[in-house]
Every structure is written in C-alpha cells, then in structure tokens.
Design a protein around this nucleic acid. Structure first.
Lengths: 199, 199
DNA sequence: GTCTATAGCTGGATAGAC
DNA sequence: GTCTATCCAGCTATAGAC
C-alpha cells in the first residue's frame, strides 16, 4: 500500500540509478515519458528491475517524491535557521529545478490518488515548519499580525515564486523583473541588504 | 501542422460532442485518460471519428484549448469593461472550473511542443489585454506606477488566485481566508464595496 | 540481483465498406 | 459522415532461468 520499497536495500546503487533516471525523464520529457522500459534504459539496467525494487510504477513515483521531499525539508530547515530567514526562504523557494519536478508531481497527482495524498501530507509538514518560524520572525521585525498574518506572508511568497517559475518554464517573463524587485524591496526593508551564501 | 480542423464543419454536432467529452475526461481523470477510444465512448460515437474531425490527438487537444481560450478572452473583455474592473478581474480569475482545465493543459504542454506554443500565444493576448486596462485603471485610482507597476499588480492577482485554486484542488486551504481577505481589502480601498453581478 | 521471455492490454492511426 | 476491421507499437507486470 504505497510503501515504496519492495526489495533491495535502501541504499542500493541500482535503486538510486533508477530514481535518478526517473527524475531525469520527468524533467526532460514529462511524467508521461516515464515507463519501466525507458527508466531502465536510461539507467542502463534491465526493465524488470524496476518491479524488483519498487513493485509498481506508482511506487516508483512515490519513492522519487519522498526522496525529493526529504531533501526539500532539509534545505528549508537550513534556510529557516539562517540569520536572514526571509531572504533565505525566498531563495530556496525560487529554486528552478525543484519546482519543475514539483509541477510534474502535481500533474501526476490529478489522476493518481496515492500520489496526491503523499503530496498533501508533505505539504502540511513543509508549511507548518515555515509557519512556526515565520510567526516568530515577523513578530521580531515588529510586523502587526492583523494586517500581515504570518500565514499570508508565507502564501504570498510561495505563490509569487511558483507562478514566476511556471511562466519562465514557458519562456514568459514579462513583468517578472518588476515583481521580483517589489518582493525584494520588502525583504530589504525587513532584513536589510541580502548577504551572500544562503545556498 | 497544428491547424486543428481536418474535416467536418466547425459547428458540427459530433465535433462539439467530441470536444465536450475530451473536456470532461480531462477534468475528471486527467489528460492521460484521454484516448481516442475513451473520448469516442464518452461522446457516444465511433473512435475513428476523432481522426476524421481532428486528424490526431494533438490536434484534438489544441482545438479544445482554443475553444476554452476564446471563451476566457470574451469573459475577460467583459470583466475589464465593468465599472469595477479590479473586482471583476479578481472574480473571473478565481473561477474554479477554468483553472482546473488550464492546469491540465500546462501539464500537457510540458511534453507537447505544439500545445506549449499555443498556450504561450494565448497568454500573451490575455496579458496584453489585461495590461492595457490595468494601466489606465490604476492611474485613475491615483496609484503611483513606480511603487506599484500595473504589470506587477496583474501578476500578483493572477499568482495568488491560481495558487489558492491549485491548493484547493488538493483539499488544502490553510491561510486562504486570511489571504483572500487581504486582497479584497485592497480592492475595497481602490474600488469601494464590491457590487453584485460581475458574472 | 539480474536477466529473458512472454502474457495481456491499450493505445494511435489508417483502409475501406456503407 | 459513420462504421468495422486491422496493423503495429508500447505499456505493466509476472514467471522463471541463471
């Protein structure tokens, strides 16, 4: 039931190769291009191994999602611990590669229930982590929680970031510079000039 | 070459049935569920007719996209002509059905070039129409174009709207009420209390 | 763990009868 | 315009040899 691993060790080399191949195919050609045969060919192994390691294609997708989700949670924890948490959050949300993959998963989830519930439970973890820090941080900056609720600031940053990235994936960038400037102007007022090295 | 129509009249009944069936399948089961056989079965006609009317599955998708795009452009023109254009725009962007279909097309476009370019050219029309009106309207409300560029206001409204709808499609709505309240507070300050009947 | 072989299905697309 | 029949490709998944 959506457990992900059927056989093989969690740190098997072949298993990682299959996940890498799946990620590559999703990014380059969309999730519809992901079939056991193509994943195996990309990874340079036999197609039957997909079923040996993951049991089904759905479980392969779920395993890949979990791997990425864990990495994102780690990256976010690091960002939130920075001394300029808003700047760090803005930069980490604005990471291109990650969003492209997320979008594929969202599309996949529209017709695969198991994946949908996986995404929802991850999102909740992600958000609650963000919200805890955001509340403390905004209070520290003297922001009135009634006019700017922490959850709203969080949603705004995410919405703007994802929207711009989606458009850029299509080669559309009209007005993006102005919008980014507006966001960054506010960040600057709250946290001062951005200092380098937030990863 | 992406022309859409191969045979039959533009207002053929069967043609419309096929488009309706495709839309229904996309909304209910995602684009991956759209095959010539399933579309035909849903429409209650023979599968070969899909190729008679549209030539290929890609062209079927494109024809459906164009039909929806034209409707959206018409609806937007109407909204922008209202006496409360920002309110009307906010409401029309926030239409659920339309966004769900748009998302499917965006996902499809990730690996179908013909559809991608179709979306891009439509978006440009959509945006330029919005921008023309937005510039005039904001100026009329005495908004300084340097601190709030019309293109940015436009992007913000679209981004927030689409993001909230995407989340709602997953059953996530934490913080949505607060965020909507913030947007609507600003709309109210600019255009006064929302009056009914913007469609 | 990795492979071959194969069952069983669904798909896009076309030819040609009516 | 609408249908039947059909070709061929690609897919998931399993059985079983090595």
């Amino acid at each position: 039931m959506g457990s992900g691993r059927r056989a093989g060790t969690e740190d098997s080399k072949t298993r990682s190769l299959l996940l890498d191949a799946t990620e590559k195919l999703m990014l380059e050609e969309g999730y519809a291009a992901v079939s056991s045969r193509r994943v195996a060919a990309t990874a340079g192994v036999n197609a039957a191994l997909v079923y040996y390691y993951f049991g089904s294609m759905d479980d392969l997708f779920i395993a890949l999602f979990r791997r990425g989700a864990q990495r994102s949670l780690d990256r976010q924890a690091e960002a939130l611990a920075s001394d300029q948490p808003l700047w760090a959050l803005w930069e980490s949300t604005h990471s291109l590669t990650n969003t492209a993959l997320t979008m594929e998963f969202i599309a996949l989830a529209n017709h695969r229930k198991a994946i949908q519930s996986e995404i929802v439970s991850y999102s909740q973890k992600f958000r609650s982590m963000q919200l805890d820090v955001m509340s403390v941080v905004l209070k520290g900056y003297g922001i009135d929680a009634d006019s700017w609720p922490p959850v709203t600031v969080m949603l705004l940053m995410s919405a703007i970031s994802r929207f711009l990235l989606m458009e850029e994936a299509f080669g559309i960038d009209a007005g993006h510079a102005e919008t980014v400037a507006l966001v960054e102007h506010h960040l600057q007022q709250l946290e001062g000039e951005r200092r380098a090295g937030h990863r």
